[in-house]
């Protein structure tokens, strides 16, 4: 392997990490408002949350990425490819993560809310100071799984020519024609990255676990 090829792979791996973290960051920014909307007492907010989750869970990352990159320019919007990739990854994962938020909030024992009400907390105080601090801890393991899923999903955006690890691997393959080495190597590379992310997630989990 030449140093140019190695550089291409390392740059691709770095872009993959950025796409994973960027997509996950966007997903979390979306997940909390949508998850809260889903458990709101306001019917309209619940409906908005429901539509968001159904729509963006149903639309696969590749469908969104294809549309952003190939259809949106016809409407006069030319997105930076990497931005389109993060948008597609984040919008889709945001729907899944908002379900994590909703599930964790609903899993907080109702006695906690009743106690907050009895102590004269307003509903929003009860949510911020009593329910969410408990719910967030319960969300961490699921968010960890979402990070691994997000890492795997980043490979998909190679299809719209974003120069991450898979795309750069394809470039090398089209140069040397050694499919087994390139794609076998890519699989091992993703396996190692998944292992690293998983180890980091476990460390964070241990840090926030109930002591």
């Amino acid at each position: 392997m030449s140093s140019a090829q190695l550089g291409l792979l390392l740059y691709g791996a770095w872009q993959t990490i950025l796409l994973t973290l960027g997509g996950m960051a966007l997903a979390l920014v979306i997940a909390f408002p949508v998850g809260l909307a889903r458990v709101s007492r306001n019917k309209f907010l619940r409906a908005v949350g429901f539509v968001y989750v159904e729509l963006f869970r149903g639309a696969a990352v590749l469908v969104l990425a294809f549309w952003f990159v190939y259809a949106l320019p016809s409407l006069g919007w030319q997105l930076e490819p990497a931005f389109a990739g993060i948008l597609a990854l984040g919008l889709n994962m945001g729907a899944y993560s908002s379900e994590v938020v909703r599930g964790a909030i609903q899993a907080v024992p109702p006695g906690q809310v009743e106690a907050a009400t009895a102590l004269n907390f307003t509903p929003s105080q009860g949510m911020r100071r009593v329910v969410l601090p408990q719910a967030v801890r319960a969300m961490i393991p699921s968010f960890g799984n979402n990070v691994i899923e997000q890492l795997k999903a980043t490979a998909v955006v190679a299809v719209v020519s974003i120069p991450e690890l898979t795309f750069n691997g394809q470039l090398i393959w089209s140069g040397n024609g050694r499919a087994a080495a390139v794609f076998g190597g890519l699989l091992i590379g993703y396996g190692i990255m998944a292992l690293v992310f998983m180890t980091m997630v476990r460390l964070i989990e241990r840090k926030v676990a109930w002591s």
């Binding site: 795997k152 998909v156 299809v159 691997g169 499919a179 794609f183 993703y190 396996g191 998944a194």
Partner: peptide, 21 residues
């Protein structure tokens, strides 16, 4: 564990481009 932890897309490439060899 390996198949589950790595992207489907590359597994598809592997099946489609490596197996013929």
């Amino acid at each position: 564990e390996f198949i589950r932890g790595t992207p489907l897309l590359i597994q598809l490439f592997f099946l489609f481009f490596v197996l013929p060899q």
